[in-house]
Design a protein around this nucleic acid. Structure first.
Lengths: 342, 342
DNA sequence: TTGCGCAATGCAAGCGCTTACATTTCCACC
DNA sequence: GGTGGAAATGTAAGCGCTTGCATTGCGCAA
């Protein structure tokens, strides 16, 4: 009944003593107020305020066996499309009473593996990951630990794990159709690295699909792989344009690469789309105000984030594995894509 | 010595039993391998692997009274400059063995307050916050909870809390000097909302400082406040240019606003910088490839993130409050800033 | 008035780990 | 071989909360 020692934080027991009830009642009052009588609740609330009580996280996690925390590992926040998707994810998580633990992998499988283990060790109740492809041992580990996983940024219903995303391959096919239908025959793509990355691989495959659809030989597609980035895109553009048979359209794996390509075109004195068309993928906020505005694929980043938060919360709380969700992409046909020159 | 029940995760005790040592030794081996003999360490390591042991977070946090987790609350990841700063922060945190808990406030003090309490309740050992200005009750709360705070994105040595950042006011003064020195006399600024935001307020004040320095009446500065964003920047630009005495230079509070302003200029048929100069603040990756390239202030986002991670780790582990750090900003004078027309 | 059933509350056993302190082991040195 | 002391390890007491089960109290029907 006495005041807590001044050198330590108040505990549940302090609150209970002050309110004249048991710790069990205080705990119930905090976690499910409907289960205690109104008068009791009031006494407890008053004691909590007076003491400035705030529950101890470790104790709660230990006793309740959950942390209400979701981990997410994304390639990098430096790419604004991931950042924006994550923003939506985080906001929605808060709405569900969950908190976000964040890590990034820099597109490196080894770092990602380490981060997965770290986030689980930090008590993540569930995990959001980008793309399906990773070492099966990691999935085993997560299964053993009982940590549910939701994969985003892809839609691959044949995969054994739940996902919320879009069909990278089909989306890129749609863009490539639009390119080919403007008369382009000599195509190049500047792609992110395809190793250990199902999204980039699907995007390249999507271009080839479109070429086959339109009677072109997919073997003629020039492919340059590089890191995602403006400067790397610019360099890759120089490379593909330096060939004896330069492409009339450069289909880029994301908007950063495309913006880099367009910058380089300007430096080389090439007009876009007069001499060469350039397309992107992602539809970053700034792509529409580029000069010329960038033709690209709008991916449902916010929708993915929001839905992922809801699904993961459900998986963590309900235990059920939800159905995978496919979200649509829109083609944004802007001025950087024009008819084939000549 | 028997195998653990199949329906639960292995515990320290299981590992200890299998390795034939006490739980204390296993704990020491895991947390400070140097303290156990090599042979013992080997037995333990083998038991850990065989059992697939992974420590329980709640128990560890409860017993050790720390989580090795740092919380950060930023306005929004939708703005790539915050996202990039956070990327650097997170990477550096990992290097220090810490994990990031992330929340966002949407620039709303009430949401930020709620997030601060949430992150503390989720066991954050320390907190990184943007800007100094917030309800003193929050600082009291954090102090009572013993959670150290590091403020970023500002440098204000007179504040009682440690910070790592830059002088928003001085940086903006430098930019405004550059503008005025090109002959501009009629100035406008498109600013983020200044309520509860010391950064935006300092930036506007910085412009006024420069005007005073150069003998202009700071009262003539046209100020429009709006949300940070491209579209809002575009609308604000129309508003300031619609006055009977339109400015010859529009100094924007960040790059998004400036890019919106430039887009609107194009729509209105105004040449930048021929008819009106536009400047930004942040130096987002894409600002240099805008058309025309945007004159702006480069803020040390990555450096702030990296240093913040180091300082906060030190505060959490060492307890000492480090010195506040001031980082320099660079002026990026690009083509969107030209001489006054006529 | 008595008894029954349910709602409200209390009791107490963990949850799995860290760590202060106690004990044992191992050497170097005399 | 004996001794002192450091290094290695063991013992066991919590850390603060949740929750299954036990108990109490109260309204209501008989």
């Amino acid at each position: 009944m006495d005041t807590p020692a001044p050198d330590r934080l108040p505990t549940l027991a302090d609150v209970a003593a002050r309110a004249g009830v048991s710790t069990a009642t205080v705990s119930r009052c905090l976690n499910d107020p409907a289960r205690v009588q109104k008068a009791t609740r009031q006494k407890i609330t008053e004691a909590v305020t007076a003491l400035g009580y705030s529950p101890n996280f470790g104790a709660r996690a230990l006793a309740a066996k959950r942390t209400d925390t979701i981990g997410a590992i994304i390639p990098t926040l430096d790419n604004s499309i991931f950042a924006r998707g994550l923003q939506a994810f985080q906001s929605a998580l808060v709405d569900h009473g969950m908190t976000l633990l964040l890590a990034s992998s820099s597109f490196r499988p080894d770092l990602e593996a380490a981060q997965i283990r770290t986030l689980v060790a930090r008590g993540a109740d569930g995990l959001m990951l980008i793309g399906h492809e990773r070492d099966p041992a990691l999935y085993d580990f997560l299964e053993r630990q009982g940590v549910p996983v939701l994969v985003s940024w892809v839609h691959a219903p044949e995969q054994p794990r739940a996902s919320v995303g879009f069909d990278n391959r089909a989306a890129m096919t749609a863009m490539a159709h639009a390119v080919i239908d403007r008369g382009h025959r000599r195509l190049a793509t500047i792609s992110g690295y395809t190793q250990a990355n199902d999204r980039t691989r699907d995007r390249v495959a999507g271009i080839r699909d479109a070429m086959v659809d339109r009677g072109l030989n997919p073997g003629t597609l020039q492919v340059v792989e590089t890191h995602y980035g403006i400067e790397t895109g610019a360099r890759a553009f120089s490379q593909v344009m330096g060939n004896e048979q330069p492409p009339t359209a450069v289909i880029c794996g994301n908007d950063l690469l495309a913006l880099g390509a367009m910058r380089q075109a300007r430096r080389l004195g090439l007009s876009v789309p007069g001499d060469v068309s350039v397309t992107g993928f992602d539809d970053m906020e700034l792509s529409s105000i580029a000069d010329p505005p960038l033709a690209t694929v709008r991916i449902p980043h916010a929708e993915m984030g929001t839905q992922a938060a809801g699904m993961l919360t459900q998986m963590v709380r309900g235990g059920a594995r939800p159905e995978s969700v496919a979200l649509p992409c829109d083609l944004c046909l802007r001025a950087s894509l024009g008819p084939v020159p000549g």
